[in-house]
């Protein structure tokens, strides 16, 4: 049986990477903060903004770039710098604002990329672009490509898992879409499997009341044995695959809850992730799970 930690160590990156360059990476954890604060307020102060504060955005900077319909009706486009103060930290002298006091202390352990730019000017196309490389819907997401190209060494759990932090009740933030973890034109088994907060992390993982453990086992075995007879009769290898997938589903019924079980985490771990990490579905707890 796979434990939580050992599952994580097997996630995503597999054999193909063992080619030209030896790699130490075993898994990828990708945090996508939809609606997070601007880099200008966090780690990319852009000092020239202060110089031009309040002035109209110079044409030499804008160079004809389009602007979102939210601001295109404005008569002026004043430059606004961050209202937060920045300092240089660590030996690298990386810049962080006062909003990131903890990052200041680990400045030399972080790789900051400040050269990223985009054509997207609106929320939906921007996050679709980040995840799929195209502003328009329809292409596979990065997780699906990694899954397709590298696969997983773990046979008990899906290779590509998605977790969404939830608010109570309906969202009032910008929406998310299943396209962000979709396999696009790749076969659908490369899409992200959503692990949900709460007691049923994978859709239909838990048997409902009335399906007792021995009933589940009987259903699994009865259909498995009947399938095996059919396979022997017809010779279709797809039936053997089906039998194997049912067995994996049965194993997942115990391996996934184990993976999602944080009850054995020491208090010191919770302390590192903050008090929110004890609440299911919060961003903090999803980080801890990841």
């Amino acid at each position: 049986m796979t434990t939580r930690r050992n599952f994580l160590s097997q996630l995503a990156l597999g054999s193909l990477l063992s080619g030209a360059t030896p790699t130490k990476a075993k898994s990828i954890i990708y945090l996508h903060m939809s609606g997070g604060p601007s880099q200008i307020d966090l780690f990319d102060p852009k000092p020239q903004l202060k110089r031009f504060q309040g002035q109209d955005l110079p044409a030499s900077i804008r160079m004809g770039q389009r602007i979102t319909g939210m601001t295109s009706g404005q008569s002026t486009l004043p430059v606004a710098s961050s209202v937060f103060s920045f300092g240089k930290y660590g030996q690298s002298g990386a810049e962080f604002s006062e909003l990131l006091p903890w990052h200041q202390k680990i400045a030399d352990d972080i790789c900051l990329v400040r050269s990223v730019n985009t054509d997207a000017i609106n929320h939906d196309p921007a996050i679709t672009f980040i995840q799929t490389g195209s502003q328009q819907p329809g292409r596979p997401c990065i997780g699906s490509w990694v899954n397709y190209g590298l696969g997983s060494e773990n046979k008990n759990l899906p290779a590509f898992v998605v977790m969404i932090s939830q608010k109570s009740g309906i969202n009032v933030d910008q929406p998310l879409f299943s396209r962000l973890w979709s396999s696009g034109f790749l076969p659908s088994n490369y899409q992200g499997v959503k692990f949900r907060a709460g007691t049923d992390p994978v859709l239909f993982l838990n048997d409902p009341e009335g399906i007792t453990p021995s009933t589940r086992k009987n259903i699994l075995e009865l259909s498995g044995q009947l399938n095996a007879k059919r396979a022997a009769e017809l010779g279709d290898p797809e039936i053997e695959t089906r039998i194997a997938q049912y067995e994996m589903a049965y194993r997942m019924q115990s391996s996934v809850p184990e993976l999602m079980d944080l009850s054995k985490e020491p208090e010191s771990t919770y302390a590192l992730y903050g008090p929110e990490s004890k609440k299911p579905g919060t961003f903090a707890q999803q980080c801890l799970l990841a």
Binding site: S188, N189, L205, R242, Q245, Y246, M248, M252
Partner: peptide, 8 residues
């Protein structure tokens, strides 16, 4: 496809 999620 033929996946364990279909079984569930």
């Amino acid at each position: 496809t033929n996946t364990p999620l279909q079984a569930l």
